[in-house]
Amino acid sequence: MTVKSLIAGAVLGSCLATAAAAEDPDLIFKKTTVWKFLSPDHKLGTYAIDDPDVEGVTCYFTVPEKGGWVGWLGLAEELSNASLSCRQVGPITFKRKTRQGDEAFSQRRSLIFKRMQIVRGCDAKRNVLVYLIYTDKIIEGSPENSTSSVPISPWGETTAPAKCSEWITG
């Protein structure tokens, strides 16, 4: 590796970290699951993220976070386990039209190869938003997943609530 490629990698990494920081979820709390003597503990982290395309919906998810020195340095490949709970927290307003399975949130779970995603869909028959959290890898995905649903209900409104089928298509 040349010095130029090392510098370019550092600049790219810095840019990606800055871009990711703008979309970081809100930390609600962390709970230690495995105590480590001289390094950071293994933990479960619970976070909240507002759906960027559907105002009035917040998703809460819990993911394992590796401790130890490898976890502290950000080099550990995180486990694929995740739980998800999404709720209506205000009047639901769609900001733009999207497609079934479009990404609402994504987060890196290893240095290069693994990514956790929260995607959204619409159960048109019941007017319910459906969210799925899962982890994928470049070579091999993971069956670990969790699903949550948000029935679209009136929120102090005198008009009928929005229909997800008018905003999320096929």
Results as ranks from 00 to 15, higher is better:
Arg115Cys: 08
Arg115Trp: 04
Arg115Met: 13
Arg115Leu: 15
Arg115Ile: 10
Arg115Thr: 13
Met116Ser: 11
Met116Leu: 13
Met116His: 05
Met116Phe: 06
Gln117Asn: 14
Gln117Thr: 06
Gln117His: 09
Gln117Cys: 09
Gln117Lys: 14
Gln117Val: 15
Gln117Gly: 07
Ile118Val: 09
Ile118His: 03
Ile118Trp: 01
Ile118Glu: 04
Ile118Pro: 06
Val119Pro: 04
Arg120Thr: 06
Arg120Lys: 14
Arg120Asn: 07
Arg120Glu: 08
Gly121Val: 12
Cys122Arg: 01
Cys122Met: 11
Cys122Asn: 03
Cys122His: 02
Cys122Glu: 02
Asp123Thr: 05
Asp123Phe: 05
Asp123Glu: 08
Asp123Ala: 06
Asp123Lys: 06
Asp123Trp: 05
Ala124Met: 01
Ala124Phe: 02
Ala124Lys: 14
Ala124Ile: 03
Ala124Pro: 11
Lys125Thr: 01
Lys125His: 05
Lys125Arg: 15
Lys125Trp: 00
Lys125Glu: 01
Lys125Asn: 02
Lys125Leu: 00
Lys125Ser: 02
Lys125Ala: 06
Arg126Ser: 01
Arg126Ala: 01
Arg126Ile: 02
Arg126Tyr: 00
Arg126Phe: 00
Asn127Arg: 04
Asn127Asp: 05
Asn127Phe: 05
Asn127Ile: 04
Asn127Trp: 02
Val128Arg: 06
Val128Cys: 08
Val128Phe: 01
Leu129Met: 05
Leu129Glu: 00
Leu129Ile: 11
Leu129Ser: 03
Val130Arg: 05
Val130Asp: 04
Val130Thr: 08
Tyr131Arg: 10
Leu132Val: 11
Leu132Cys: 06
Leu132Trp: 08
Leu132Thr: 07
Ile133Arg: 09
Ile133Asn: 09
Ile133Glu: 13
Ile133Pro: 15
Tyr134Leu: 13
Thr135Lys: 04
Thr135Ser: 06
Thr135Ala: 10
Thr135Tyr: 03
Thr135Asp: 09
Thr135Gln: 08
Asp136Asn: 14
Asp136Cys: 09
Lys137Ala: 15
Lys137Asn: 11
Ile138Pro: 00
Ile138Lys: 02
Ile138Met: 13
Ile139Tyr: 03
Ile139Lys: 03
Ile139Ser: 07
Ile139Cys: 05
Glu140Asp: 15
Glu140Thr: 15
Glu140Tyr: 11
Gly141Phe: 06
Gly141Trp: 08
Gly141Ile: 05
Gly141Lys: 11
Gly141Pro: 15
Gly141Ala: 01
Gly141His: 06
Ser142Arg: 13
Ser142Tyr: 15
Pro143His: 13
Pro143Asn: 10
Pro143Cys: 07
Pro143Gln: 14
Glu144His: 12
Glu144Trp: 11
Asn145His: 13
Asn145Lys: 12
Asn145Val: 15
Ser146Leu: 07
Ser146Ile: 13
Ser146Phe: 11
Thr147Ala: 10
Thr147Ser: 14
Ser148Asn: 08
Ser148Asp: 10
Ser149Phe: 04
Ser149Trp: 08
Ser149Lys: 13
Ser149Pro: 03
Ser149Gln: 15
Ser149Cys: 07
Ser149Ala: 05
Val150Met: 03
Val150Asn: 03
Val150Gly: 03
Val150Ser: 02
Val150Lys: 03
Pro151Glu: 00
Pro151Val: 00
Ile152Glu: 01
